[in-house]
Design a protein around this nucleic acid. Structure first.
Length: 847
RNA sequence: GCGGUCGUGGCGGAAUUGGUAGACGCGCAGCGUUGAGGUCGCUGUGGGGUAACACCCGUGGGGGUUCGAGUCCCCCCGACCGCACCA
């Protein structure tokens, strides 16, 4: 008997799959296709255990689908542009390109031993000129289709990374990568017209039945649809060419409670007025500088400036309202102007109390007429309230009904229009960085902005750049900018901005369908493989990456690079949980925490006997040293152990805790399976007992494991495999039955532990590669037991049980139940009031 | 503040969706093998109670619906996540 040696068998079978081109994906009209994709990694240089979990889940699906007759596409690539490469160049010297490609080579070497069923021939990195050149072609097509434009915009400027960030990349007022406080700057920037699709992106969420509700909710909130009324307040005297102030409100029903009209400091009318009013100008400057970080916004005092302008109330020309500039009004939402209704909006109320402006209630709760004091009355829109003097004649109605009535009223009267508004802004894609996809346009003195010709693509990044000073190396490159105008041929200058790296990951899934195509996609290949049937990745991409990808799929459809059926790129989405680990801490002589790697801690002690404090499991991080290295795990136990353990214990959508004991237990289990296989292989043609039982257990396992995989219940599937293994180990069945069982066990384990499974399959004369074998099918007849054991409850509590033939009729079951000892005992306390028999399930005797 | 998810043994977690709560794994205990330990094998393991049964309690807390509730409804407590001056 040999012992389980993962190092040897894993390499052996990886070579076999490789030589057999087992996982090469080739379109085949005779097979249903299945496209499995895990979010591709950033090439940091080392894989972490989270990658192992993510890619193992995808691999389980991919291998399972292959064995059920699907033509599977399961590719891998690298999200390779971005800041860390430049940071490394700045800190350690070297070139971002070398750094990136070296990291990719290292990570590929670390990933391949996992034995993933990936078609490596499709591999690419987004920093390959072949990829970003096609991205530039796509950009030009989008420019032609009016999906990209340039505008002057107040942008989020990250002073550390020295670049612009999209709104989505600003988290609590800080840069998502650098963590620096973001400033506001005005620059000319390129934008994708994602906001034009806001309604469509929102509505289409409804059709994504196999996406987590949480992700859909997050996207819906981000898109932020609201329905309201837009109308104009007429100025008593026009100023700087403005006759009125256009406002947008979602609560037009509160118009009778209007207190003042508020406008943003960035409103064009205010900007015009600033020129001749230094006080106003300094106020606006103060507001613009204003807080961008969350705490400051939270605490921010309401600030206002009375412009002295007056407007007429649309329902009563004699009623004049003052116009104030207020710091809480945003120019890029709605019209940048509002009317304030302090009684029913806390912000407006705070403002009015501070500047002593009137507060008028427009409705009351049905049971409470107390006027608003310092807390605005803001009931749910679905709640009925009592209206004071409503202009559209309402008395008691819900807020929503009142809003609808008011919009109707205003439209009929002709002074306002119902309007749907979105929170989603256009996606600013310009980045003042080197290591990104160059924006393929040229600035010509005569022709203006001119797209580069497609035959000149890719616009390549120059290699001879330096990172000794901050800012964009493309900007200061001596010659790279110089080019000919594609329109007039005169000397011109290239755009030096590169694209946000989220652009790279917004269409890579489509490129995988034809990675070598000389157009962004080959429409035949894309037509065959798209959509992604199962996408797997982290919840952290719920908004940014997934929303951008949905936008790009539509843009690629409009520009002819994807079929209309690929509108939504990801049919099903699964968001997996993190891998966590305990944190081990001691303190130094100054009382500061010192963290220790898991491998340095045994039984809560360091090697020198010092006790460590154990902090509950948290996301692995280098600074807390609670990390395990997949390379070491694979070296110690093999890939199959790492894969199996990452799927056991916790449901895949939840966090899983890495424990040394758990990994050890997995390894032991795989050893037991190995030993069991050896034992069975050594059996003669013995006869035995309990073949039927073993085969029934086997078919039940086939059924349960299949269901577990289909429903992403990997942990439950593994539990069933433990059960089946234990049953087989104890079985006294004949050699032939045991051989059949061990072969099926190998098959059922193969998505999770493919190497061990192949080895067992081969040892028991399985036909060809297990990776090519069809998935076993449970025999329905073997799933149905002849007899069932039903619990007997007395007054709802289980007291006894009854084993009867499955089809025994109800009256017989009742008779047997009433003869049960426990029931007889209970009957001493009184007669049967009710007798419930659910055939095959349960008996309940009510006394 | 608004929205969502979730609370089950010492621990990770199951529960065919209203039908035997605690599958499976870890840990722990006992026995066997080895005989120093570890490995390996077997058995037990929610709490109380009993010689053993019986029996009582038990899915964050309280109430309700039901023959029957971890599962459905209402209230409360706690944890985590997302959003948050968006008019």
């Amino acid at each position: 008997m040999s012992s389980y040696d993962p190092q040897t068998i894993e390499q052996k079978w990886q070579s076999a799959w490789n030589e057999g081109e087992t996982f090469l994906a080739v379109p085949d009209a005779n097979k249903p296709k299945y496209y499995v994709l895990e979010m591709f990694p950033y090439p940091s240089g080392r894989i972490h255990i989270g990658h192992v979990r993510n890619y193992t889940m995808g691999d389980v699906i991919a291998r399972y689908k292959r064995s059920t007759g699907h033509n599977v596409l399961h590719p891998m690539g690298w999200d390779a542009f971005g800041m860390p490469a430049e940071n490394a160049a700045m800190q350690e010297g070297g070139h971002p390109k070398d750094w990136t490609y070296n990291n990719i080579a290292q990570m590929r070497d670390q990933m391949k031993p996992l034995g993933l069923s990936i078609d490596w021939t499709r591999e690419f990195a987004t920093c390959d000129p072949e990829y970003y050149g096609q991205q530039q072609a796509l950009f030009l097509d989008m420019l032609g289709a009016d999906l990209v434009y340039r505008k002057n915009a107040v942008v989020n400027w990250d002073p550390v990374d020295m670049t612009v960030l999209a709104n989505e990349q600003v988290i609590d007022g800080k840069g998502w990568r650098s963590g620096a406080d973001v400033e506001r700057r005005e620059l000319t920037q390129w934008f994708f017209k994602i906001s034009d699709m806001a309604g469509e992106l929102l509505d289409a969420l409804d059709g994504l039945d196999n996406w987590p509700a949480k992700v859909k909710t997050m996207q819906a909130n981000w898109i932020g649809q609201s329905r309201g009324l837009q109308f104009s307040f007429e100025l008593t005297e026009s100023t700087h060419g403005f006759d009125g102030v256009e406002v947008y409100t979602t609560r037009p029903d509160t118009l009778m409670g209007a207190s003042f009209v508020g406008v943003s400091a960035d409103h064009p009318m205010i900007k015009a007025m600033e020129a001749e009013d230094p006080n106003l100008a300094s106020f606006c400057a103060e507001v613009r500088k204003g807080a961008t970080n969350a705490e400051a916004i939270e605490k921010a005092e309401k600030l206002g400036f009375d412009t002295g302008l007056k407007v007429k109330h649309p329902l009563n020309p004699d009623w004049e309202l003052p116009v104030w500039v207020a710091n809480f009004i945003l120019m890029d939402y709605g019209t940048g102007a509002i009317f304030a209704c302090p009684a029913h909006d806390q912000r407006d109320l705070d403002f009015c109390r501070k500047y002593d402006l009137p507060v008028t209630d427009t409705f009351f709760a049905l049971d409470n007429d107390t006027p608003v004091a310092n807390e605005a009355f803001v009931p749910a829109k679905t709640e009925k309230v009592k209206w004071v003097n409503h202009f559209a004649g309402l008395d008691v109605a819900t807020g929503q009904d009142a809003i609808d009535a008011t919009i109707g009223f205003a439209e009929t009267a002709g002074w306002g229009t119902g309007k749907t508004q979105y929170r989603l802004r256009d996606w600013g894609l310009s980045r003042q960085r080197y290591w990104g996809c160059p924006i393929p346009v040229v600035h010509c003195d005569s022709c203006g902005i001119v797209p580069e010709k497609k035959e000149n693509l890719p616009v390549r990044l120059p290699d001879d750049v330096s990172f000794d000073i901050p800012g964009n190396p493309l900007d200061r490159h001596p010659t790279w900018r110089n080019c000919e105008c594609p329109a007039c041929g005169k000397p011109a200058l290239r755009e030096t901005d590169t694209m946000d790296t989220f652009v790279d990951s917004s269409w890579y899934y489509a490129r995988f369908t034809s990675p070598n195509s000389t157009t962004p996609t080959d429409t035949n290949e894309a037509g065959y493989w798209m959509n992604v049937d199962q996408y797997i990745g982290g919840i952290e991409h719920a908004i940014l990456h997934l929303l951008y990808s949905r936008f790009f799929a539509r843009a690629m459809q409009i520009t002819g690079h994807l079929p209309a059926s690929a509108n939504e790129p990801f049919d099903a989405l699964f968001t997996q949980g993190m891998v966590t680990h305990e944190i081990y801490m001691t303190k130094d002589d100054k009382g500061r925490p010192v963290y220790h790697l898991p491998e340095d801690v045994t039984d809560g002690k360091l090697a020198d006997g010092t006790e460590v404090t154990v902090i509950p499991s948290a996301k692995m991080s280098k600074s807390k040293k609670n990390v395990v290295d997949p390379v070491k795990i694979i070296a110690d136990y093999g890939a199959d152990t790492a894969r199996w353990f990452m799927l056991s214990d916790s449901p895949p959508e939840r966090d899983v805790e890495w424990t040394a004991a758990g990994a050890e237990a997995t390894y032991k289990h795989l050893n037991r399976v190995w030993t069991l296989s050896e034992k069975i292989a050594a059996m003669g043609d013995d006869s035995g007992q309990g073949d039927e039982d073993l085969l029934r257990t086997m078919h039940k396992a086939i059924f349960d494991v299949t269901q577990g995989i289909e429903s992403f219940g990997f942990n439950a599937a593994l539990a069933k495999l433990y059960g089946f293994t234990n049953a087989l180990a104890k079985s006294k069945a004949s050699a032939s039955a045991q051989r059949e069982a061990i072969r099926v066990l190998a098959q059922l384990m193969s998505p999770m532990t493919p190497h061990l499974a192949e080895e067992i399959w081969a040892a028991h004369s399985g036909d060809g590669l297990l990776a090519d074998a069809p998935w076993p099918v449970a025999d329905e007849k073997m799933l149905v037991e002849d007899t069932v054991t039903m619990p007997i409850q007395i007054n709802g509590k289980r007291r006894s049980e009854l084993t009867v033939p499955k089809d025994l009729d109800k009256a017989e079951v009742e008779k047997l139940a009433l003869a049960d000892d426990a029931v007889l005992r209970a009957l001493e306390n009184g007669p049967v009031k009710k007798l419930i028999v659910v055939p095959g399930r349960i008996v309940n005797v009510v006394i």
